[in-house]
Design a protein around this nucleic acid. Structure first.
Lengths: 329, 329
DNA sequence: ATGAAAGCGCTAACAG
DNA sequence: CTGTTAGCGCTTTCAT
């Protein structure tokens, strides 16, 4: 029924070992033989069974991706970069959504392990301790992108959040801002911590008084942005930094609906930079993460681990830009 | 090194067949034995190798998804619905982006075949003839979601585009619109054809004169929307129906930038309904596709094919709603 | 340069 | 209810 390597061997009058060799580009095959085999392969429309190959070789050319929510632009932008590089290196990608649920995250990881993936990348989400243990025990190449974890000893790709937020904040202060608020969005705790520290550093450098009440936590979607507004307005900051673009737009709309002028009365900037930034009016300023690149570089890094290539730097820091659009002065 | 079913069998003093039985929930195992085996499995932290299992059973519990671009909200919304149902039925999902490139589409399909996936779903994109041939020859369960193809004999999940567009158009005409334009966005040709027909039917029913110049083609992103504006304005339609939300927002901004009032001077409605609709100001009206559900129902349908369950209806039509928000009167 | 043969880790008859 | 025995389709020594 389905044609196997054995059929090809028989038709080409060689052994299956030889067929396997031409399949895998092994140079130890006489050109004549190679051609003969290739012809038969074409004629029979033979396609190697990747599962059998995986079992025999212990390599599946499949990688797992664990991500909070693929329908969120932030994550899907990361995923797209990753996928393109994966394709370039001939890897297939199994994607699993976790909604940042630790249990789903663990299940996803274990099921990827049992599928014998060659490597796994965590995109964006928080990593809980149990999973961290699983990772360690698995001895599998793992890269984390756009998120950070406690021990920081996993290969990773990020930007320097601390520096980025500090730089942006200093600029706002220098241009007259009296107070800056930060709205977290349940991304990685570790990562949001870095950002908070960056903000505090800016306060300190300017001799301004930082208060914990200036930090808010909400979801990473539009509605969460609208909802946090009532709390936000009480502190009367004149600059608001958010994690997520969607949240920022929710906040923006909430302010405008209440008669505030943006950016005259309040400035808003996100720490993301998805395609949404241009679709909002006024267009959204952001500390622009190279989302696509973070995913792409993460995947490239993973291929190096999977192929035992030398690693120059396990914790890659990518450059960021600060894009001042129309929600800032 | 890694623990196999054989190790478990030895430790539990049973045959590997018995271990396999408890693994697969085969009832023909004495409760005592079952417990004994389960204990050993736990103690050894044994995890079945899905690849070996796949080779032996010819089932991989993996499905392939072929999609134009996961970083586009329209598609990723479909994908999310699909993924949730896949998870529910214990299938893993391999996602491949094609950018609607026929060659990529074909490569993706063939590589999924070689991975021995149990089924494939096409999400949103166009299906070219070559792939259609491959599908036929593969004898693999395939369902297509949010797109349609020439012969219409593949299992599918859609809404009734023709009816939806006709209904919306009639309403616009009845409320005084003189002329309606439609902006395609390189989704499936077949599908856009249906929509065009629906629009023409409305023109006909109202005794209005339809011209081909009222139909436009552009990309499915924001920039494409902005770019098509110059052409659009020449025909002076008072209602514009677009395929994509992003395109609609691009068009909306272009009109507003030129001093038009929306919806007073021109009304805009998309045929999509991603999360973007609320993030635009004015908020975007749309013929609301149940994107998540289309993906979810598609995956459910696929599971039926994969498990040889009876199929009530191979071509599922889901209901739509027309959401009049602020870009329509 | 090529072939023979032993697995990879599991499922699935078939016996008993 | 349990064990034995073939494979599944390929890679990979090891000979030759």
């Amino acid at each position: 029924m389905t044609v196997t390597i054995y059929d090809v061997a028989r038709e080409a009058k060689v052994s299956m070992a030889t067929v396997s060799r031409v399949l895998n580009g092994n140079p130890n095959v006489k050109p004549d033989t190679r051609k003969k085999v290739k012809d038969v392969i074409e004629r029979l429309d033979y396609r190697p069974n990747a599962v059998a190959r995986g079992l025999a070789s212990k390599k599946t050319t499949t990688v797992g991706v664990i991500i909070p929510d693929i329908s969120n632009l932030y994550y899907s932008s990361l995923a797209r970069g990753l996928d393109d590089i994966a394709e370039m290196y001939n890897y297939q990608v199994i994607i699993t959504n976790t909604d940042n649920d630790p249990e789903k995250e663990r299940d996803a990881f274990l099921s990827l392990i049992s599928k014998q993936v060659d490597g796994i990348v965590f995109l964006g989400g928080a990593l809980n301790d149990e999973t961290l243990d699983d990772i360690k025990r698995s001895h599998l190449p793992v890269v984390i992108c756009g998120t950070s974890e406690k021990d920081e000893n996993l290969p990773s790709v990020n930007i320097d959040y601390h520096k980025a937020i500090k730089e942006a904040s200093l600029k706002f202060f220098e241009e007259g801002a009296a107070q800056i608020s930060f709205v977290k969005a349940s991304y990685s705790e570790q990562l949001e911590q870095h950002i908070e520290e960056g903000l505090k550093a800016a306060y300190k450098e300017k001799g301004k008084n930082f208060r914990n009440e200036l930090i808010f936590s909400t979801g990473e979607d539009y509605q969460s942005g609208k909802e946090i507004f009532e709390k936000l307005r009480t502190v009367e900051s004149d600059v608001i930094i958010t994690m997520s673009d969607e949240t920022a737009i929710g906040i923006l709309h909430a302010y405008m609906d209440e008669g505030f002028k943006v950016p005259a009365d309040v400035q808003i900037i996100s720490c993301s930079n998805t395609r949404l930034v241009n679709m909002s009016r006024p267009s959204l300023s952001s500390i622009a993460l190279p989302l696509y690149d973070i995913g792409a570089v993460g995947m490239r890094l993973l291929t190096k681990y999977m192929k035992d290539e030398p690693i120059e730097e396990a914790n890659v820091i990518l450059p960021y830009k600060i894009e001042y659009r129309s929600t800032t002065k």
